[in-house]
Amino acid sequence: MIDQLLSVSTRNALSKLSETVNPASMPGAASPAVATGQPSFDSVLSQVTGKLQNAEAVSLKSMTGDVPTRDVVNAVMDAEKSLQTAIAIRDKIVQAYLEISRMPI
């Protein structure tokens, strides 16, 4: 189920974006995420994927009665919050890309 969220087209789009905009390939330039000490979008996505997988595992364990309902709700809400954050970041990236593409040369 989680793998469906990161479909092949999304992975291809992200890899093309990282190939197109690769600050490490520019001489003397460091990655903005590395320079500011902030996590990259890739690491944020991997964290979101981990939280979604955890929520799914906790939900499945709750069906057998191994996990209390409160833990299931907490895991699902945490995963939803992380997913909404990743979606907001993605939307900002797309918005910035579209803004740059509309700039006259």
Rank of each mutant, 00 (worst) to 15 (best):
Thr10Lys: 08
Val8Phe: 03
Ser46Ile: 08
Leu60Met: 15
Leu98Gln: 12
Asp71Arg: 10
Ala24His: 09
Asp71Ala: 15
Ala29Phe: 11
Val94Arg: 04
Ser101Asp: 14
Ser31Cys: 10
Val21Gln: 12
Pro32Leu: 04
Leu52Asp: 04
Gln47Leu: 09
Val58Leu: 04
Gln4Trp: 05
Ala30Cys: 07
Pro39Gly: 03
Pro23Val: 11
Ser43His: 11
Pro27Tyr: 05
Leu52Gln: 08
Gln47Gly: 05
Ala33Trp: 04
Ala33Ile: 01
Leu98Phe: 02
Lys92Ser: 08
Ala24Ser: 14
Asn54Phe: 08
Pro104Ile: 01
Asp78Val: 07
Val34Asn: 10
Met1Arg: 02
Phe41Gly: 05
Ser18Asp: 09
Ser40Met: 07
Arg102Glu: 11
Gln4His: 02
Ile105Leu: 15
Gln84Asn: 11
Lys16Phe: 02
Ser43Thr: 14
Ser7Ile: 09
Leu83Phe: 12
Ile87Phe: 01
Val94Asp: 00
Ser46Glu: 15
Ala57Gly: 03
Ser15Met: 02
Gly28Glu: 00
Ala75Thr: 12
Ala30Leu: 14
Thr64Lys: 05
Asp42His: 13
Thr85Cys: 03
Ile105Lys: 15
Asn74His: 11
Leu17Asp: 04
Lys61Ala: 12
Ala29Arg: 13
Gln38Arg: 10
Gln95Lys: 10
Pro27Met: 10
Thr36Glu: 03
Lys51Ile: 00
Gln53Glu: 14
Leu6Cys: 04
Thr36Val: 03
Lys51Ala: 09
Lys81Ser: 13
Ser9Trp: 01
Leu5Ala: 07
Thr20Glu: 03
Gln4Lys: 12
Phe41Val: 08
Ala13Val: 02
Gly50Leu: 10
Ala57Gln: 05
Thr85Ala: 14
Asp42Thr: 12
Asn74Lys: 15
Met1Trp: 12
Glu99Met: 06
Met103Asn: 10
Val67Ala: 09
Ala57Pro: 01
Asn54Met: 04
Asn74Val: 12
Ala88Arg: 01
Leu14Glu: 07
Ile105Ser: 11
Lys51Gly: 02
Thr36Met: 13
Gln84Ile: 11
Gln38His: 08
Val72Lys: 13
Val72Ile: 14
Thr69Arg: 14
Ala33Asn: 14
Val48Gln: 01
Gln84Ala: 15
Asp71Asn: 15
Leu17Pro: 01
Ile2Pro: 11
Ser7Glu: 08
Val76Leu: 05
Ser101Pro: 00
Thr64Leu: 05
Tyr97Phe: 13
Leu98Gly: 01
Leu60Asn: 08
Ala33Thr: 10
Gln47Thr: 05
Glu99Asp: 06
Glu56Tyr: 11
Pro32Ala: 12
Thr64Met: 08
Lys92His: 04
Ile93Met: 09
Thr10Asp: 08
Glu56Phe: 06
Thr64Ile: 10
Asp3Met: 00
Leu83Gln: 03
